[in-house]
Design a protein around this nucleic acid. Sequence first.
DNA 1: CCACAATGGAACACCGATGTTCCAGAAAAG
DNA 2: CTTTTCTGGAACATCGGTGTTCCATTGTGG
Lengths: 179, 179
Amino acid sequence: MTNVRNRTRQAILDAAIEVLSRNPSAPLGEVATAADVGRTTLHRYFPERTDLVAALKEEAKLRLDEARLRARIGDDTGAAAIRRLCQEYFDLGDVLSLLFHEQIAFDDEGAGDDDAFATVVQRGYDDGSIDPELPVTWVQNIIWSQLYAGWSYIGEAHVSRHEALRLILRSVEGAVTPR
Amino acid sequence: MTNVRNRTRQAILDAAIEVLSRNPSAPLGEVATAADVGRTTLHRYFPERTDLVAALKEEAKLRLDEARLRARIGDDTGAAAIRRLCQEYFDLGDVLSLLFHEQIAFDDEGAGDDDAFATVVQRGYDDGSIDPELPVTWVQNIIWSQLYAGWSYIGEAHVSRHEALRLILRSVEGAVTPR
DNA sequence: CCACAATGGAACACCGATGTTCCAGAAAAG
DNA sequence: CTTTTCTGGAACATCGGTGTTCCATTGTGG
């Protein structure tokens, strides 16, 4: 039934996120294996590789939106909102690496997201928690790059997720706060 | 003669840096074309793809070392030294993207480089220009991720190299300075 | 000018990933 | 239990990148 199909489809997507985030050009067979599914079945759900990648972008965008909602970026000062946003994004884990390796990142998030983010930063300019010298897009870049740095740091330095998150928040705040 | 050979070899390496930094899995034919060289010739200098990649790592390490020397990281405060290091690294351009896409980055730079860097950061701890809460490796991560962010920012936001560098330096300094 | 080195194009075999088809077995729905 | 759906393995054709060989051409150095 459609229930089974959804479950299989989701299993494939999850596996794809895990595998392709580490190696964007991994063969589809690896994805299928990771999803505990035959390669045939994978092709049944996503006829071509591009179809899988497209669905993956959708999925990523979805999770990104959810994270943004959880962060309640409308509350508090701009900097505080961004801090919460970083925390939520951090928990996305593999999705982040995926967003990096593919060039799906910023521009592609959909206009709605960009606007919401711009509003937050603007609020930060006004309430004095974000340096007005830094353009909105640059603030965005800082966040992404620090998140990526944090995740790779976990792998390199054998550090807990918690500690990595602490460093990320510290660095982003330092980079964004007016001097 | 060996003179001609060196020139050809270098042309291939330069082209490889340019092409593979944008797309690490680009076919060798593209590299050859970019180098104005026949694919046959490329194979004559680098029999297998892995040979080219290895030589590329050498070349990158070389340029990295040169940049570090130019930065004179032994002088001034720790933060000032790191600032100059960022400037020099920034000028490496494509090499940076290459170092990112391959996993050649940090760990692989050779122990000598790591030690030199650790010394600088330590000096920063002592002279109060770098926050002692931030581990050496994390400072390293900040630098790399901000440099990468800066270069992608140039492509996205249509901003001059100079402006991107300014933002990088501003952000790194903010992230590293004790509060 | 001559000999030798270096080059690039063409043709080839090879390999791994991709996408397709077919079929038999498992699982869910009725 | 029976029917229908979903699955996964095997076999296959195809395609693009890789690495090799051969040969004719260019050009560099003596």
